[in-house]
Simulated assay, not measured.
Amino acid sequence: MEALQTPDRGLHLAVALVNTRTHDPEQLVSPAALRRFLLHHGELEPVDVDAADLAAMIAVRERIRPAFHVPPDAAAALVNDLLAAFAVRPYLSDHDGTAWHLHATRPDASWAEWAAATAALGIATFAAAHGFAALALCAAEDCERVFVNPAPRRVRLFCTPTCASRTRVASFRARRKGESQEGEQM
């Protein structure tokens, strides 16, 4: 398992992992899909995973998900529980000829343990700097994606411009439909 290569890597991993299950089809459907996910998020070969790794990663994902929409005290407790269960005192490593980098899990940690510790540390670091209000669930009714919003005024409500536009168009059409129905009744 690779290290925390940048301070926000853990946060990006948490968001991406949670967003593998939304109203869209499940993305982590096989060990091969989990392997692709890990490689896409910076892990280096060898990435060997099996069905047990997949099940454990999905369980970790579901443990992390509430951090994006529960009250701050509950989110902090959730993150602290993950850190207590999976993280160790960080240490530097240059294993396998890599450059020095930080590890926050045991050397023999599973992929799910690594993801839980890395994501929890990323969320904790981000929340300490920006508050838990900066972790958000998309406001679109038909979206379950989560995102982070470090902007001080927190004006962002949607995960993407696509969700924002789709919501605005639906609202506009509903208003227009309501106006036309009122006009017909007169």
Rank of each mutant, 00 (worst) to 15 (best):
G97R: 04
D81N: 10
A134F: 08
L83I: 14
A74S: 14
S93N: 08
H101K: 05
S110M: 04
A85M: 02
P46V: 04
D53V: 02
W111S: 02
L102W: 09
E45A: 15
E43F: 04
S93A: 14
R63F: 00
L54R: 07
A99F: 08
W114K: 05
I123F: 06
T118Y: 01
P90T: 07
W100R: 06
A112G: 09
A77E: 14
R89N: 10
E43R: 03
A117S: 12
G97S: 06
A75R: 11
A77S: 13
R61M: 06
V49R: 01
A55Q: 10
A128F: 06
H69K: 01
N80S: 13
A56R: 10
A133N: 10
P107N: 09
A116V: 07
P107M: 05
A104G: 13
W100K: 02
R106F: 01
A51R: 04
T98R: 13
A134L: 08
F126E: 04
L92G: 08
M57Y: 02
F132V: 05
F86L: 00
D50I: 12
L82M: 11
A124Y: 10
D108V: 05
A59H: 12
N80G: 07
I123H: 08
A127Q: 07
A75W: 06
A56D: 15
P66E: 08
R89Y: 00
H95A: 14
W100Y: 05
A74K: 11
A129G: 10
T98E: 14
G131C: 12
A75V: 12
H95F: 02
A75I: 08
A74D: 14
P66S: 02
F132Y: 15
H95I: 04
A116M: 03
F132N: 06
A74I: 06
A56K: 02
E62M: 06
P107D: 13
F86P: 00
T125L: 14
A85V: 00
V70T: 15
I64C: 01
D48W: 00
V47E: 02
A117Y: 06
A87V: 08
L102V: 15
A87D: 11
H101I: 00
A52D: 15
T98H: 13
R65V: 02
A117L: 07
A52S: 15
D108C: 05
H101F: 00
S93P: 04
E45L: 11
V47I: 07
R61T: 10
A134E: 09
A109L: 03
D73W: 01
W111P: 03
V60S: 01
L82P: 10
I123S: 09
W114G: 07
T118E: 14
L78Y: 03
P46S: 06
A77H: 14
P66Q: 05
Y91T: 05
H130S: 13
S93I: 01
L92N: 06
H103Y: 10
A116E: 07
M57S: 15
T118I: 01
I64D: 12
I64E: 08
F68S: 06
P107S: 12
F86G: 02
N80K: 10
A127R: 07
Y91A: 04
D73R: 14
A76M: 04
D94M: 05
H130N: 15
H95C: 00
R65H: 12
A52E: 15
A56I: 04
H130G: 12
T118A: 09
A59F: 00
V79S: 03
A74M: 09
G42L: 06
A104N: 13
